[in-house]
């Protein structure tokens, strides 16, 4: 019931209307790229797919939706002050959390996978869209949504404004820390996703700052290591979130006299 409720809540028509532009944006950019290439020059679908899927779908949509949806599992109930109904029922708190998280995770997977498929349709064409790389990406989306989602869920159980911390992590930490020397790369989820779903970006000719920083940081992660790391992050974060949620009091601040 909680699972269905969370999924239904996420896939409500009004929510879908809000998410639709984000989901469709990579595909629209792909179409735009294609139409520009027709006017002069060549269009290479693989390059367009790699750029938009690696940079936009994995680097932006997956993270953004995971932050919003996973932190919403707790913070939405707090903000709309409906938590009291859930926490005063004879059902274990961890079950409430995990059921709602599962719904939210599945919803995220559906939306990000839709973005991936739409992008593939736009760059490869509808008949060529279902390529191996697309299926691999969808599998990695599922794993990535799980890892990001559990991390942001833990964040939501620990702090009062999880969305802010989540966004900082998503677009600050995940963007910059992998570029730093030493093994800091290994504490970024995006590093493991890039190993599992590599999307080489085209060279610009001159080496930019990013490329230079990346070259200074040649940490090797194997696909098996990446998969295991994401699963470990997921399990640790989910267990920690379940334990925290079972022990902490969740009362909206303004309700506290």
């Amino acid at each position: 019931m909680l699972f269905k409720g969370a999924l239904r809540d996420l896939l409500r028509p009004r929510r879908l209307l809000m998410a639709a532009p984000l989901v469709a944006l990579p595909a629209l950019l792909g179409l735009f790229w294609r139409s520009m290439a027709r006017r002069g020059g060549t269009f290479e679908p693989e390059i367009a797919y790699n750029v938009l899927q690696g940079g936009f779908v994995f680097g932006f949509i997956l993270v953004l939706l995971s932050v919003i949806v996973a932190t919403g599992v707790v913070s939405q109930e707090m903000e709309q002050r409906t938590m009291v109904y859930l926490l005063t029922r004879p059902i274990a708190r961890y079950r409430i959390l995990l059921a709602r998280f599962t719904g939210a995770w599945l919803g995220t997977c559906i939306l990000v996978s839709a973005a991936t498929l739409l992008l593939a349709c736009s760059v490869f064409g509808p008949t060529e869209a279902f390529q191996a790389i697309v299926w691999t990406d969808i599998k990695v989306v599922v794993l990535g949504a799980l890892a990001y989602g559990s991390l942001f869920l833990l964040c939501a159980t620990l702090v009062n404004k999880p969305l802010i911390y989540g966004l900082f992590f998503a677009f600050g930490w995940e963007s910059w820390v992998p570029l730093f020397p030493t093994n800091l790369k290994k504490v970024c989820i995006v590093s493991y996703l890039r190993v599992l779903a590599p999307h080489p970006q085209p060279s610009q000719g001159d080496e930019g700052v990013m490329e230079l920083l990346s070259a200074l940081n040649p940490v090797v992660i194997t696909p098996t290591g990446a998969r295991n790391a994401l699963l470990i992050v997921t399990v640790v974060c989910l267990v920690a979130a379940a334990v925290t949620f079972s022990r902490r009091a969740y009362v909206p601040r303004e309700d506290s006299e």
């Binding site: 409906t82 009291v84 109904y85 926490l87 004879p90 274990a92 022990r247």
Partner: peptide, 19 residues
């Protein structure tokens, strides 16, 4: 967080919040 208690307890909270 006691399920045994919640089985026998009902609450009508002050907050005007619903789904």
């Amino acid at each position: 967080a006691n399920q045994e208690v919640f089985r026998r307890l009902g609450i009508c909270p002050e907050v005007d919040s619903f789904y």
